Amino acid sequence: MTEQQPVALVTGANSGIGVEIARRLVDDGFLVVLSGRNDDRGRAVTSELGQNARWVRADLTDSEDIQRLVDETVSTGGRLDVLVNNAGVDLIGSVLDLPEEKLRENFEINVFGTIAALQAAGRVMRDQGDGGAIINITSRLALIGVPTMSLYSAGKGAIQSLTTAAAVELAPHNIRVNAVAPGMARTPLYDTWVADQDDPEATEKDVAGKIPLGRIAEPSDVAAAVSYLASPGAAYVTGTTIPVEGGYISQ
């Protein structure tokens, strides 16, 4: 009898870091279910990743949709071994002036959607009896202060705290909960931001110059940290955060 293929679910896997995480987990031998809101892009990425990738469209602002996503993942793979809580959106604005409406929209995905996915996946991992791994993608901004990013940081900080507390609570079920905190990474969103600056080349040089390792992170750098936390090699690692930010927060 052959050993069952491990199954991973990656939210926010339409582009950028989410795609690279899914790609790395496919390469690691997982059956990977990718999810997001952009159906066309999601299907294209899944097709590119091959036979061990599946696409399920879901909206993380809808708790019933999140439950459906987890149910379809289990139906597809027979189990759920790894959840990567990657879905999230940016929020930039003054801590004193940003409208409540914008804050609530951001928290619906970055906080409540992440919590609902952890709950739904955690119940499956508990009930299947052999545990699993939940990996939350937070941010360097959960650990430091940057002007105009305070309220985004608040959401990521909430997930940072959730990671450590849930790790303790779920440990008796052999469910490991960890986080990866990326710094500035070369994603489509980053590329658009740089292109919109008056002097894109100078902007990129300035950003990289503030990072001790002297470069912007690649999505594959983040995916490598996720790969470790999802692997048997991290079987005794829980409640921790791996910063992937080139040494920025150590200054």
Rank of each mutant, 00 (worst) to 15 (best):
E204S: 07
S161H: 14
L143P: 09
G93H: 00
D65K: 05
S220H: 09
T187H: 01
A179Q: 00
I17N: 08
R215I: 03
G88E: 04
A223I: 03
K156N: 03
I115F: 14
G18C: 00
I17Y: 07
D198H: 15
A208K: 01
V32S: 04
I137L: 10
S35N: 06
N14P: 05
L69Y: 00
D65V: 04
I134S: 06
E100A: 13
V146I: 15
L141R: 13
A217N: 11
V82F: 06
S15T: 13
P182T: 00
Q67G: 14
L9V: 03
A165T: 15
E245F: 00
E218Y: 09
A230P: 05
G93E: 03
R79C: 02
G183M: 00
A120V: 00
I17D: 08
P182I: 02
V95C: 08
V89F: 10
A208S: 07
S250C: 10
V180H: 02
L80Y: 00
V45Q: 08
G29F: 06
E245G: 01
A158P: 05
E204C: 07
E48Y: 11
T240R: 11
R79G: 02
L118I: 15
I92P: 10
E3K: 15
Q119D: 11
E3F: 14
A116H: 14
S227W: 06
V82A: 06
V222I: 13
V89E: 10
P219M: 02
M1K: 15
E72P: 07
G155A: 04
V95S: 12
Q51F: 12
D130F: 15
G42W: 00
G42P: 02
T61V: 09
T76E: 09
D65S: 09
L91Q: 04
R43H: 11
H173P: 11
I175T: 00
S94V: 06
I216P: 01
A217T: 08
T163C: 06
V10L: 04
R57M: 13
I144C: 09
V10S: 05
A208M: 03
V244E: 00
S75R: 15
A166C: 06
R126S: 11
V95Q: 09
R57D: 11
G78W: 02
A158N: 05
A224K: 10
N110L: 03
G157N: 02
G233H: 08
R186S: 09
A167D: 03
K102P: 11
L151D: 05
L103N: 11
E101V: 12
E169N: 09
I17L: 13
K156D: 01
S139W: 01
L34A: 07
